[in-house]
């Protein structure tokens, strides 16, 4: 292109040069408008993300002293149910007896509890399938085929380490961050 223009003499070449420069400016101006419009989309979309007050970590303290072995309680953490369960030795034994290789989401009971407090199973009460609250924490509720938790929505069965054993849920019930402040109290969050 350029060679042809040069062969035709200076004036048309300068003209073509001008046309190219003008095209460039026009494209640049439209691009700037486009980039500006796209940048404006960011705050419009980002405003729907959790706001600072929601993100501010809410902490809860749970008193364990009233929970007898074999009992569980349901409490609320970040607007979601939290299960706290005092496992009996039999339940712990049952959980430890399962070969890890057979699990859909392989984890040992020890990995899901704190050292020295392996009878305290603290998990979110949110089924990993589609977010229903599983049964089994309240007295007399159906604990499913494996004696842990049972989600009635789509039939997921969790064992005594709250690991998924049967049904559509893909992973074990989530274990939140927590620490023991005393032997009978935990701070979650």
């Amino acid at each position: 292109m350029a060679a042809v223009e040069h062969s035709e003499g200076l004036a048309p070449a300068a003209e073509a040069e001008g046309v190219r420069r003008r095209d460039f400016i026009n494209v640049a101006a439209v691009s700037f408008a486009g980039v500006g419009g796209a940048a404006l989309l960011y705050p419009l979309i980002n405003q729907m993300n959790p706001s600072a007050d929601v993100l501010a970590l809410a902490q809860i303290d749970v008193d364990l002293s009233q929970i007898q072995p074999g009992q569980a309680i349901k409490t609320i953490f970040r607007k979601q149910p939290l299960f706290v369960r005092n496992l009996t030795p039999q339940e712990m034994q049952a959980a430890n007896a399962v070969p890890i290789s057979e699990l859909r989401d392989p984890q040992t009971l020890a990995e899901r509890t704190k050292e020295g407090h392996s009878n305290w199973l603290i998990t979110m009460g949110v089924c990993t399938h589609l977010g229903c609250v599983p049964l089994g924490a309240g007295p007399g509720e159906n604990r499913g085929e494996f004696g842990g938790y049972f989600c009635p929505c789509h039939g997921s069965h969790y064992d005594t380490a709250a690991r998924i054993r049967k049904g559509p849920a893909p992973t074990n019930l989530a274990v939140p961050e927590y620490e023991f402040t005393t032997d009978t109290a935990v701070r979650v969050g």
């Binding site: 003008r22 400016i25 026009n26 640049a28 101006a29 439209v30 700037f32 408008a33 500006g36």
Partner: peptide, 11 residues
């Protein structure tokens, strides 16, 4: 953007 727009307008 305004300066570029003005130049494009002149073009």
């Amino acid at each position: 953007a305004t300066i570029l727009g003005r130049m494009a307008y002149k073009n």
